[in-house]
């Protein structure tokens, strides 16, 4: 009975891990790709670790709970790294299938980004204020990207 339950947990975990990486290959743009690993992988690895807890606890050498620590750690850190990556991608103005929420200032772009922007010129709103704000930001000299991360508030 326990064997079947363990097998079920292990298979679920492995399948979800697989699906998470499949999302990484199949989906079309970076922001949708971000969903696969952060969700599927946490449950995948989570159920594998719970299987491990049950497996080592029922072998007679005492309760072994330290795998729970990895589960807890992954559940706390996975959203944080996803958030950081999404923020970095928004900052770099990566192409997105969805309409971007960021106000853009076309004058500031390097050549590569410029080309991408010209494909969707209809979404761009030129704004004097936005250009002014982004020129004040200190981060832009070291990386060749558009540094305007002012939100479309107005």
């Amino acid at each position: 009975m326990l064997d079947y339950f363990l097998s079920f947990l292990i298979l679920t975990g492995a399948i979800f891990t697989f699906i998470g990486s499949l999302g990484l290959v199949r989906l079309k743009d970076f922001y949708t790709r971000l969903h696969g690993p952060t969700k599927a992988t946490t449950l995948g690895v989570g159920s594998l670790l719970i299987a491990s807890v049950i497996f080592f606890s029922t072998r007679g050498t005492g309760v072994s709970l330290h795998e729970l620590l990895i589960t807890l750690f992954l559940f706390i850190t996975a959203p944080v790294s996803a958030h950081m990556l999404a923020k970095a991608a928004l900052h770099l103005n990566l192409d997105s299938l969805a309409k971007m929420p960021v106000e853009k200032a076309p004058e500031e772009k390097v050549k590569k980004v410029k080309k991408e922007v010209e494909e969707k010129t209809d979404e761009i709103q030129t704004d004097e204020k936005a250009a002014h704000v982004s020129s004040e930001e200190p981060a832009k000299e070291s990386t060749p990207q558009n540094s305007n991360e002012k939100l479309a508030d107005s």
């Binding site: 699906i19 199949r26 949708t32 696969g36 969700k39 449950l43 309409k99």
Partner: peptide, 23 residues
């Protein structure tokens, strides 16, 4: 979280062109 995993798994296995991502 458990329900989310099944939802996202179904979306990944489905046709990726039919997804409608949004901000």
């Amino acid at each position: 979280i458990v329900m989310a995993n099944f939802t996202v798994a179904r979306l990944i296995l489905g046709n990726p062109d039919r997804l409608k991502p949004a901000f």
